[in-house]
């Protein structure tokens, strides 16, 4: 089955029809998506700013990460689920939308930035856990993370203005 056929099959699925045919459903999904974004970006920003060297309520970065990361991940999961539901409602249109595709690329880049952080400087966290300012590698990861998530949100907002299908 070609990609185009798969996208059309998704578009014609019961779930997709249900979302499109019931007017309050899509904005409700979007509202949860925005709540998820606010929680993801709000909590990541606190960690990133601490990584850059701004004080948080925890001096220890490791404590801060342990405390806030479950919220970030839970909210990210909600963003993915609600994002998938919006995609299902209009799969061919999203796949055809440059802003959506770039958004996925930048989310992947944010994930890679996080993995590099965890695989490198974070392994030696005990050496710089309470240091202000933190080492440059940590500060760079923080700046990159904020920049990438900002871009994700900007691209996301542009999808609403460029998506071909409005139902």
């Amino acid at each position: 089955m070609s990609l185009q056929n798969m996208l059309l099959a998704l578009y014609e699925s019961d779930l997709s029809l249900w979302i499109r045919q019931n007017p309050p459903v899509f904005p409700t999904i979007e509202s949860f998506h925005v709540i998820a974004i606010a929680l993801v970006f709000g909590t990541i920003l606190i960690v990133d700013l601490r990584l850059i060297g701004f004080a948080a309520h925890r001096r220890s970065i490791d404590k801060l990460i342990t405390e806030l990361l479950p919220v970030t991940w839970g909210a990210f999961a909600l963003a993915v689920v609600t994002g998938l539901l919006m995609f299902v409602a209009n799969a061919p249109a999203y796949m055809n939308n440059a802003q959506f595709l770039w958004k996925m690329v930048v989310i992947a880049a944010a994930g890679i930035n996080m993995m590099i952080f965890h695989a490198t400087i974070y392994r030696r966290i005990a050496d710089w856990d309470v240091m202000i300012p933190p080492p440059n590698a940590a500060r760079t990861a923080g700046v990159l993370s904020i920049t990438l998530w900002l871009t994700v949100i900007y691209l996301g907002r542009w999808i609403g203005f460029t998506l071909d299908t409005f139902f």
Binding site: V34, I35, I37, L39, G42, L45, I46, L68, Y154
Partner: peptide, 22 residues
């Protein structure tokens, strides 16, 4: 203009929600 202003609006919401959450 509108998408950019809306994006700044969402970022400010995220800051507000992050601060309120903790």
């Amino acid at each position: 203009f509108i998408p950019t202003v809306q994006t700044i609006h969402i970022l400010a919401i995220a800051i507000l929600v992050g601060a309120a959450l903790v």
